[in-house]
Design a protein around this nucleic acid. Structure first.
Lengths: 140, 140
DNA sequence: CGTTGAGTCTGTATGAACTACAGAGCGTAA
DNA sequence: TTACGCTCTGTAGTTCATACAGACTCAACG
């Protein structure tokens, strides 16, 4: 696994899963649908991953966690891979994603504000009704 | 639909869908799984909604849009409904969600920064390789 | 007054994105 | 050398919706 110069030589699927926190089966799924590249194999047909796979999978997972669809993630990866066409194309694609990201941030901030107001106004007493809970109802 | 005092009397499912932007079928789905309460029915078995359903459904949709799972959304609704137990319980639940939201915001900001740096450094020329695209690779 | 077109009802099928399982092969350590 | 854990493949199941089929209702139009 180590070539003695501090570089990881090869990772098995379970190791890639552990390093990224990705589900073992999802790695194969991403390969099947073309999100992850098919890695080289050992003589006995075992997949062998390296740092580039770790970085790519982490990127995919963060994008998914942030609510991008797999198709949107594919676009982001095309950007990463320089497969998004000409520079103006790249700019336009990135700009659309920036706007989507900003909208998500704004929404999350609204939710965060309402939640923290609720919590801070909570007395912490053993009262079943917080009297501030209905603040959440107007959370928009 | 209107009692003459500015209050909506009853909404059909399609009207609830239009007011909230929710898919028509999803409303029934949410009722089936207990996210939305079963509304009263007309003599002919048509569902009748009111403003409380509008507010609740909007809340659910925003929570889902912000990446909360249906189960988490259920927790938030319990909070709203005062069904989450004592006030300290409510605080703890809300606090966990606040932390999840803040983590998401931090992730999104990182993504946003990298994307806008990419775009701003783009020349806009018809060059297939932007020379900044690999910045995205380190987007973590 | 009848029929027609839009809206509703139910159950079920389809879709996206995973996630788990079954059955076979590999590999290493006791 | 066999036991245990890992890998491989294909396929089935889960979650969160979304769409469809077939029957019913209802208001309007001629």
């Amino acid at each position: 696994m180590n070539d003695g110069r501090g570089k990881v030589r090869g990772l098995r699927r379970s190791e890639l899963a552990r390093l990224t926190g990705c589900n073992l089966e999802t790695i194969r799924y991403y390969e099947n649908i073309g999100i992850m590249p098919p890695p080289p194999r050992t003589a006995r047909n075992y997949r062998v991953y390296d740092e580039s796979h770790v970085a790519r999978l982490r990127f995919v997972m963060r994008a998914r966690d942030l609510g991008f669809t797999l198709e949107e993630t594919r676009d982001l990866l095309d950007l990463v891979d320089g497969r998004a066409g000409t520079c103006p194309d790249v700019q336009a694609l990135a700009q659309r994603h920036i706007e989507a990201v900003r909208a998500k941030i704004a929404d999350l901030r609204r939710i965060e504000r309402v939640l923290s107001e609720t919590v801070s106004r909570c007395t912490g007493d053993e009262v079943p009704d917080c009297a501030v809970i209905d603040a959440l109802q107007q959370a928009d």
